[in-house]
Computed example of a mutant assay.
Amino acid sequence: MNPILSEPPTCVNDVGTLCRAVFEMTGNPWLSGAVGWLANAPLRILIILVIAFLVRYVARRTIDRLARGASNGKTPRILRPLKERAPQSYGLLVSERRQQRAQTIGSVMKSVVSFVVYGLAFMLILGEIGINLGPIIASAGIVGVALGFGAQNLVKDFLSGVFMMLEDQYGVGDIVDVGPATGTIESVGLRVTTLRDVNGTVWYVRNGEINRVGNSSQGFAVAVVDTPLGYSVDIEAATEAIKRVATEAVEAEPLSDDVLEPPDLLGVDKVTPEGITVRLTVKVRAGRQWAVQRALRARIIPALEEAGIDPPLGRFTPQQGTMGP
């Protein structure tokens, strides 16, 4: 109720109220209205603030409980409705990834709860004071539009980060190609993703600038081994040797722990003026394709040398010190 009155306030009609008593004693409508407002409005404002604080406190505590559990190796309840793409082979990184993801999503939810609860409480308090909310809401809308245009890149980064978290497109430990940079993810925030490339350089990539993500650490990967051969070699004998060496290698440790399926020899993949390229592929655990490729190359090349199968430019003969025919 607005305390500035030119006519007797409605509270003077209520028998036994302080407002009516003051009006009967003074006959002043403004004073009686002010007394009536002070007798009721502060109490209602206090009740609104207490309820808002309690609702916010309970909601935040609930969100915190839902976000716990990642440090104990369990999936936080806040993540259970969402799909998780982290390979279990990550070990401790899975817990760190879950914890970071749960904390980020929980932080967003708590911010939304605080904004909604305090925003409603603020509007209710203004209504109790007697301020017209129409112009304020209109002004807030204009300011919001202006801020949206001025901070559209920040809003874009934030929304992109939220959806990346919800969809679990990538996380700590994943090897990804995000366009501007390629490397291992070290942290994922709501605005910036941090990754480190093979040279040790740390890249900070804004989430809003990521148009596509190539993740090499989800599900499975394929190790591709290309072996160059000369035109004079027996292709059938060379492919049999490559297949035999690769099969023996993947069946023995340590490669057997990373390989999911037997090697698949695709055959001649490329013919160039320099020679012929034979391609072999192996289905492996996510993120282990590069290690398997290096190990297979290290075994296939010496095996071909022992079998007398020359590379495209000939075989090196240590006795002669030159490249042979």
Rank of each mutant, 00 (worst) to 15 (best):
E128V: 13
I129K: 12
I276M: 03
V213H: 01
V155G: 12
V108S: 05
P76N: 06
G179M: 10
G214Q: 15
A307G: 00
P262S: 07
W37K: 14
T227C: 10
L154M: 13
V278Y: 01
V225A: 07
A146F: 14
I125P: 05
R297C: 06
F316R: 13
R279Q: 13
A121C: 13
Y118I: 10
T239Y: 00
P254H: 03
E305V: 13
T277H: 02
R97P: 03
V145A: 15
V113A: 14
V162C: 08
E253W: 07
I185D: 01
T281N: 09
R212N: 13
A249M: 04
E96F: 14
L120F: 13
P228Q: 04
G230N: 08
D226I: 07
G308W: 07
A34K: 12
S71M: 10
V188N: 03
E128C: 10
P325F: 07
G171C: 01
N2K: 15
V58I: 15
V12L: 09
A295Y: 01
G73F: 13
L154D: 15
A140P: 00
K283L: 10
P9M: 05
I47K: 11
P29C: 10
V15T: 11
S111F: 15
L133R: 08
L260M: 09
R101D: 01
T317P: 00
F316N: 04
L82K: 04
